[in-house]
Nucleic acid binder design. Sequence first.
DNA 1: ATGTTTTTGAGGTGCGCACCTCAAAAGTTG
DNA 2: CAACTTTTGAGGTGCGCACCTCAAAAACAT
Lengths: 345, 345
Amino acid sequence: MEFLRQMRPTAKDLAVEAGVSLATIDRVLNGRSGVKPRTVIKVNEAIERIGFVRNLAAVNLARKKSYQFRFLLPDHGDQFLDVLVGHIEEARKAFADEMADVAAIRLPVEDPYKLAAYLGALDAETTQGIAIMAPETPQVRDAINRLLERGVEVVQFIAGQPKAGSNDFVGINNHAAGATAAQLIGRFSAGQKGKILVVSETMQAHDSIERRLGFDEVINREYPALQTLPSVETRGDTLRTARIFENVFANHPDISCLYVMSAEARGPIGEISRFATRPLVKIVHERTPFTEAALRKGEIDAVIAQNSGHLVRSAIRILKARNDQRIPLASQEKIRIEILLKENL
Amino acid sequence: MEFLRQMRPTAKDLAVEAGVSLATIDRVLNGRSGVKPRTVIKVNEAIERIGFVRNLAAVNLARKKSYQFRFLLPDHGDQFLDVLVGHIEEARKAFADEMADVAAIRLPVEDPYKLAAYLGALDAETTQGIAIMAPETPQVRDAINRLLERGVEVVQFIAGQPKAGSNDFVGINNHAAGATAAQLIGRFSAGQKGKILVVSETMQAHDSIERRLGFDEVINREYPALQTLPSVETRGDTLRTARIFENVFANHPDISCLYVMSAEARGPIGEISRFATRPLVKIVHERTPFTEAALRKGEIDAVIAQNSGHLVRSAIRILKARNDQRIPLASQEKIRIEILLKENL
DNA sequence: ATGTTTTTGAGGTGCGCACCTCAAAAGTTG
DNA sequence: CAACTTTTGAGGTGCGCACCTCAAAAACAT
């Protein structure tokens, strides 16, 4: 007994409405050639009229479609990367339902030649899309462009490849992130005079540069009482960090704020307490077990973060949409710059 | 020519692996009766062994499944509601692909009898799930419980129905949201003494009460220099608001902060400037065209928000999952308490 | 009008699964 | 042991669509 639950019109209904055969409907829907423009219009009008929407389940079934997506991530990593990999694993299970096979691949992304070689070996038969988190180099840019030509979809993941042919970027606006950090530091400093120590693992990366630009812009414009010091590069080396801190604090005893621009905050936050002469306003990036704990203990004042689970799912959804020639839902894929206090963890 | 793109095992493969027939596989997968426990185990082991995952597209196709979901929202509304309705319309298109029909229904939710009557008329044949945003009353609670018994899934949307049988709630933790607002006000106040004016449309709603509790907790514990005044209720009436403000500022000229707890901030923010004797730290809730503009113009200092697009999609995903007897992905459905400054809009 | 090309229709197959029927096999009981 | 009852297998149908082939019809050219 079929109840009245209104059924959606099928291709058959559409054929009747448009006054053509199913074969023609098929030709129009799948963009095959040999259909008079007039007929195409007729069909499209009928689609509008009865509100026909293809049954995606049936389409995917008939097409035997499946997706192989790969996240290419650095092989050496901080806690933030571990968090990301965890979310990829989670997504792997969640998206199995939708015929998507998702996996993380760790690569020496800082070696442009190895990375380009890896990309060059990919083909659209076995990989439908990749999300790549790697510094931008000419070699990698070219490899990405060639991938796109071969029909492999690419999204730039967290780290942008501004000149690459891929239009899709999943991550935050780093300029705005830096500005946000600056605004917080400014407000938290409460009009007091002081200097800001800005720390990054490296200033080579585009991300750090942009964050720094956004940061300085706001401090200079809105907080003249604060003075920003040149960026300090830790290179991920704690000893080096300590040495630099000692030096910097010797020259600038009036440092009142710390801004850690790169993802790994453990080194700087661990060392800073040994040198700071007074309580500092401290802001770091990315939510990790460490930054979360530090926030709770009051060792840092705020975290600027991007939702890593969202990042991963967003990349997958975009890759899927592109593979299906669909437009990703912009409002869903925009990654927000989150401000975390201990109250809203 | 079929390439090597590894195919996922099908039910047929599973039957071979488990050494049973397709009919038995079907019985086990769909929980039909008349299968020896021993056989069920055999099949489940085989599922583990070959990593069998049902092809959702095929399942849905064979089951002719479709979903009718309804958002039940107040019929009189502020800007925040308009934003929500916009997102529901967006989701309506996005989820049409997945056989889900989504729509917003505006109701006099403050009338428990009308609302309960509406809920009572729903049945699982025509409505598979609802997301309800309504104040909690005994009538509504009962109606919801009866809906659940009839097989209609229910999620509590933004406003909680703490005692209802539905376990799913889509929205933020209001206690934490209030605490977050307090922390911001405290930090932005920079140790200066002052009083905080707390405004709400009504203190009847659970949400406002919880926000207030979280707010006071943080202020009292961490910011002794600040003093919170009793909540002021606007009842959505601008004239009333102005009258109250005049009165309050007469008695407390040393008010230094404003916290608007309810979604509609236009009234209080519009009126406050006529009475404030000095620049205030102002924090409001929810992102709307108004709060966005006010943030940009510097008329308010921060917005505590929940991502309304996420709210809508999350509710839909949860309703879908429950309909399919699946567990929603917790990490994806957790709604974050967002802090918006003009820099991270 | 004839031949040629373009456009359309009719019909079939299969995707992976749900759901159904009927009969065969295995297990249980007295 | 026969007479049951429970469990399993074999096989069919259809979900809505993609993709294919072949023939018929329509449009066009000469």
